Simulated assay, not measured.
Amino acid sequence: MQRKIMVVTAAYGHDVVRHAGGQIALLPIIAGAKADGVEIRREMFTPAELETLPDLASAIESAGLLACYSAPEPLFMPDGTLNPQLPALLEEAKTLRALWLKVSLGHYSDTRPFTLLRDWLDSSGMKLVVENDQTDCGRLPPMQRFNAACHTQKLPISLTFDMGNWLWVGDSPEAAAQQLAPSVGYIHVKAATSHRDSYRAIPPDEAEPRWLALLNALPADVPRGIEFPLEGADLTTVTRRYVDLLRKE
């Protein structure tokens, strides 16, 4: 089966997206590049756009694309409780007819309010994927503890493995892949290079071969999302180049 390639709208940059007319305006580019789907980013909506999710869902379907939905929200709040916005976010993902909702882990603790989380997921019928972000909450130890708890509780949750974010928090991406690979349901593909006192994302073919070895250590049959900068005069051609690269690697 051909692996699925998703294009994250944020890869084009906020200014480009706004100038184009919002995320809906990128769908012809992504479809023209022969990608399988689009990752819609909640933080890139205007308040007015957030009110038109059914229209966006129809446009995505008309373009022949799958959708996933990313919200810049933690699953767990600073006090260890579940984010009270999660039911509303799951409903938004459902309105978009998304494959899953993606959030970050947040402040996971051993209080484990998993019965409520299971109820919310069962009620929505929506899958949840939890990403390692660029904060201490997204480091390997808390991600491991949460993942182990999900297995124990048999929760319908998988992980988004962001290949670059481990570097931002000082963890080894390779060690993370060794520990978490069996639970990964979605991969955010990006390479990173040192930039000042941190890192910046770059296209993988501009990076050292490390990115490919890391990608090969992850499941080959889960969707891959392009989350590195997509820039150029012809965005469809640029996007198609990387869709083809990630589909065959």
Rank of each mutant, 00 (worst) to 15 (best):
Ala201Phe: 11
Phe146Gly: 00
Trp120Asp: 11
Ser198Met: 10
Ala93Val: 13
Val130Gly: 01
Met126Val: 06
Phe161Ala: 08
Leu117Arg: 09
Tyr186Asn: 08
Gln178Met: 03
Ile157Cys: 11
Arg145Tyr: 06
Leu101Asp: 05
Ser124Gln: 02
Ser109Ile: 05
Gly185His: 11
Lys190Glu: 11
Met143Asp: 01
Ala176Cys: 10
Phe146Gln: 04
Leu99Met: 13
Cys137Pro: 00
Arg200Ala: 10
Leu96Cys: 06
Asn147Lys: 00
Trp168Pro: 00
Glu208Pro: 00
Leu89His: 08
Ala191Tyr: 02
Pro204Trp: 01
Ala207Phe: 12
Pro203Ile: 04
Asp162Gly: 01
Thr95Lys: 01
Gly170Val: 05
Asp136Ser: 12
Thr115Val: 14
Leu215Ser: 04
Trp168Asn: 04
Ile202Val: 14
Thr193Cys: 12
Leu212Val: 05
Gln144Asn: 01
Ala207Lys: 11
Leu101Gly: 02
Ile202Leu: 07
Ser109Lys: 12
Pro209Ile: 01
Ala93Glu: 03
Leu96Thr: 10
Pro141Ser: 11
Gln179Val: 12
Pro203Gly: 09
Glu131Ile: 05
Ser104Met: 04
Cys137Asp: 15
Pro203Trp: 09
Phe161Thr: 04
Leu159Lys: 09
Leu214Phe: 05
Asp171Lys: 06
Leu180Cys: 10
Arg196Trp: 06
Leu180Ala: 06
Leu155Pro: 02
Pro182Ser: 10
Leu212Ala: 13
Trp211Arg: 04
Ala181Thr: 09
Ser123Met: 07
Thr152Leu: 13
Asp171Cys: 14
Gln153Ser: 02
Gly138Ser: 10
Asn132Phe: 04
Cys137His: 15
Ser194Phe: 13
Leu180Glu: 03
Leu99Ile: 04
Lys94Val: 09
Leu117Trp: 05
Leu155Met: 12
Gln178Trp: 00
Glu208Arg: 13
Lys154Trp: 02
Lys102Val: 11
Ala176Thr: 05
Trp211Thr: 03
Met163Phe: 07
Cys137Val: 07
Ala192Trp: 02
Arg112Met: 05
Gly125Asn: 08
Gly106Cys: 08
Ala175Cys: 05
Lys102Leu: 14
Gly106Leu: 07
Glu208Gly: 00
Cys137Glu: 14
Lys190Gly: 09
Glu206Ile: 00
Thr193Asn: 08
Leu167Lys: 07
Gly164Trp: 02
Asp133Ala: 02
Leu214Glu: 06
Gly164Gln: 06
Val103Ala: 03
Arg118Phe: 01
Trp211Cys: 07
Glu92Phe: 07
Arg196Ala: 14
Leu214Ser: 06
Trp168Gln: 03
Thr135Phe: 14
Ser194Pro: 13
Ala88Lys: 07
Thr95Leu: 13
Asp205Gly: 01
Thr135Gly: 03
Gly138Ala: 10
Ala191Val: 00
Leu117Val: 11
Ser109Tyr: 08
Ser123Glu: 14
Val189His: 11
Gly138Pro: 09
Leu101Glu: 06
Asp133Ile: 13
Leu128Met: 01
Ser109Glu: 07
Ala181Gln: 06
Met126Glu: 08
Val189Lys: 07
Gly125Glu: 08
Asp197Trp: 10
Lys127Ser: 14
Arg200Lys: 15
Phe114Glu: 01
Arg97Met: 08
Ala207His: 15
